[in-house]
Simulated scan of single mutants.
Amino acid sequence: MSPLGWVGIVALGDAAIVTVPADSWAGTVREVLRGIPVGVLTDSDRLRAVLPVAEVLGPASLAYLDEGDFQPVGLDTVDVVPGGHADLVRLLASVPVDDADECGLADITSAAFVVRCGNHVVAAAGYRCWPGMVAHMCVLTRPDQRERGLARAVASAAAADGLANRLLPQWRARPEPSRRVARALGFRQLGTQLSIRIGT
């Protein structure tokens, strides 16, 4: 839910789950957050007012795809390669480190759905199987190839694969362009995730 040593908060609908990095923080965090409504638990300004927050990651939207809402995008140039394929490794190495880390593509458990430009993969998507039959979507497009619909095409193929395997596709996104891709495919935002590092 969050980086090692951070507090993680996920709010879905009218429920939330909070993880803490050490038992010593559990009582304090529970007491402080008890009076805060679920709807603002992922508001970093609200948390800064009640906890010694040193760093924040997020918030990120959590969106989910129901098969009946799916708006697939067809692109006949989407290929399938195994997760961990050398072409994916080269794609991840060709983008800024933050983009590579954020997309999660290095950790997929599914096949990868890719678009090539010449001999190079310029967009890829797949998913990591999470508990509860969730397909956590991972999508990346090389910066110089963005705004061409490639993310929608590869993500559409990955989401279709997840649905065919009776999984629930989940899309976690901070940047608005990523959220737009999710909405275009029919994902609906149902929650929010925030991670905070508590200072001393």
Rank of each mutant, 00 (worst) to 15 (best):
R90Q: 13
R188A: 08
R179G: 13
A125V: 11
R148W: 01
A173I: 00
R48V: 04
T77H: 06
V73C: 06
D69S: 15
T42A: 14
D107I: 06
A49R: 13
T141H: 03
A111T: 14
G191E: 01
V20A: 10
A111N: 10
L4C: 11
P177Q: 03
V80M: 08
V20I: 07
D144R: 05
I108A: 04
V97C: 01
V80E: 10
L92C: 11
D101W: 08
P82K: 12
R148P: 11
W171S: 11
D45I: 01
E102C: 02
T109I: 10
G84R: 10
L185P: 03
V121L: 05
L105R: 09
G68N: 14
P96I: 05
L167W: 03
A16Q: 12
V139P: 04
T192P: 01
M137I: 06
S61L: 09
E67D: 15
I198S: 04
G13E: 03
R146K: 05
G162H: 04
L47S: 08
G83W: 00
D101N: 12
A26L: 15
L140P: 02
W130E: 15
V121A: 07
I36R: 09
T19L: 05
R180P: 06
V38A: 05
S110T: 11
L51G: 11
R172G: 13
A124E: 03
S94W: 00
A184D: 12
R188F: 00
L150F: 07
R142D: 14
G191H: 06
D43K: 12
A173P: 03
H85R: 04
W6E: 06
E147V: 07
F113E: 12
V154W: 02
G39A: 14
R152N: 09
A157S: 11
G149M: 11
L65W: 04
T192K: 02
P169I: 10
D144C: 07
A11W: 01
V95S: 06
A182T: 13
L91G: 03
P131G: 08
R30D: 12
A160P: 11
P59V: 14
C117I: 00
L47G: 05
D23N: 01
M137V: 11
Q189M: 07
A157T: 07
C117Q: 07
A86V: 13
A155G: 15
P72E: 04
P37L: 10
T28K: 12
G126L: 09
C117H: 12
V80R: 14
R197H: 10
P3L: 13
V29F: 02
S44C: 04
A15I: 05
R180Q: 15
R172V: 13
P21V: 07
T77N: 07
L167K: 08
H120G: 10
V73L: 11
E102Q: 09
P175W: 00
L194T: 06
G118T: 04
P175G: 01
A93R: 13
S44E: 14
E102T: 06
P59T: 13
D43E: 11
H136Y: 07
W171T: 14
S24K: 12
I9C: 04
D43V: 10
V181E: 00
